[in-house]
Every structure is written in C-alpha cells, then in structure tokens.
Amino acid sequence: MSRTARIRLFWGAAAVIAALYTMACLRLPHFGTAVHPYGDRAVAATLRQRTANTISSINFDQRAFDTLGEESILFGAVLGATALLRRTSHDHNTRPRPVRVLPSTRLFGALLLPVALLTGIYIVAHGQLSPGGGFQGGVVLATALHLAYVAADYRALQRIRPRELLDQADAVAAGAFTVLGLAGLVAGVAYLQNVLPLGTFNTLSSGGLVPVINAAVGIEVASGVIVVLAYFLDQTLFATGPAGGAFRKKAER
C-alpha cells in the first residue's frame, strides 16, 4: 500500500471511529458523576481492612491477583531484556571512557543521591498510608541509583550497582509475591487471602499482608528497572556489534 493510500484509509477509518466514539461519550455518565458503586464498596472494604491508602488496599489486597499479573509482566520484561539484549558472539566490547562532568553536576549528584534513596525508601515504606507504594518508590530508587551515572560516570554506577544480586533480588521478590499468596492456601483459606493481623489504622504496620507485598513489589520494581536499564546502558556504552548491513552468518567459534 502506498503511503498516500495508507493515510487516506486512515482518515476514513478515523472519521468513523471519531463519530461513533463521540456518540458513545454522550451516553456516558457526565464527568464527575456521583455514582461509583464499585468504588464505594472498595472504600468500605479498605476501611474494614484498616488500610489508609485505598489504592494500596485494592492493589495489594482486594485485587491483588491483578498486581500479581502486573508484577509478572515486569518480571517477564526483565527476562525478555535478558534474552533480547544478550551479548551474542557478534558483539565485541569496548571500554567506556570516563567523561568530564561539570564540577557542579558532580557535587549536586553526590548530594542528591542519598536524598533520592531516602525519598524512594520513604515512598515504598508509606505505601499503604500515603500516595505511593512499591511501584512508585521502586522507580524512584532505581532512578536515584542512576544519578551516579549522571554525576560521575558509568564506572561509578557499576561500582555501586551489584548487578548479579539485583538480578536475583528481582526474581526472589517476584517469587515472594507468589509465595505470599500460597500462605493463604497453606493456612487453609483462599489464595492471596490477607491472613496477617490487620494492625491499627493509619500506622506503618497496618493492613496485614499489604505492607509485606508492598515491600516485595518495591524490591522487585527497583531491581527490575535497574537491571533493564543496565542492559540498555550496556548496549549504548559498551557493545559495538557489526556495523549493520545484511545480517551475517555467525562466525565459527
């Protein structure tokens, strides 16, 4: 199909979709409607579970099975990056050269790194109380670590990044979620049932299983994101494979 034909076809389809979608939107409840039956029930259930952050309660308790799938996707992405960005015999390595960084950047990065780590831990730890949780905090933690790359160079990051350990931590945390679910079955109740004592509302230990799963997710996300970024950084800074062209037969080993 030629480009013009393709774009014309798209405009036709888009016009139809836009018209019918607009008609559908006119039939939706208006923006800001007060009718949210499932939401109301979820809030009530959250308060019964003594979890202050309803979203955390839904993610790690009421609809924890969704989150199990979601964390598996993340785990799958880490495995996928391992498989896709693996070093093949095509690639040969070069050493990255150190970079001259502005002194102000270096100083700022060194100062920001601990603050960022603390922020990440704070966001993870307060997941069931205030906005945030394992995922958000995990991303902050992973980004924080990469401040070392920004402030100094890749070698500094390599020194503070125990990659093998993180790789395993990712798997262990993903497994921990699954196993925590099994705890319910072992206790004779349902899979992923919140079997721990619920604690006092609005404290760090409230919510039963919620903070535990939250912590597992935090570890998984932080280590998973770091590992994935590590594969990308390796590709960018190290590997220089064949310069392109038609794919070649692999050289004999």
Partner: peptide
C-alpha cells in the same frame, strides 16, 4: 527540603543545559 532541592537543582541543570 523541596525548596532547597529546587534552588540547588536550578543552577546545576542550567549549566549542564548550557554546556
């Protein structure tokens, strides 16, 4: 703390962008 972070981050990022 947020105010301090913003104040410190500003010049650093500006210089880096300038470079």
């Amino acid at each position: 703390v947020i105010g301090a972070l913003l104040a410190a981050g500003g010049p650093v990022t500006t210089m880096a962008i300038g470079r």
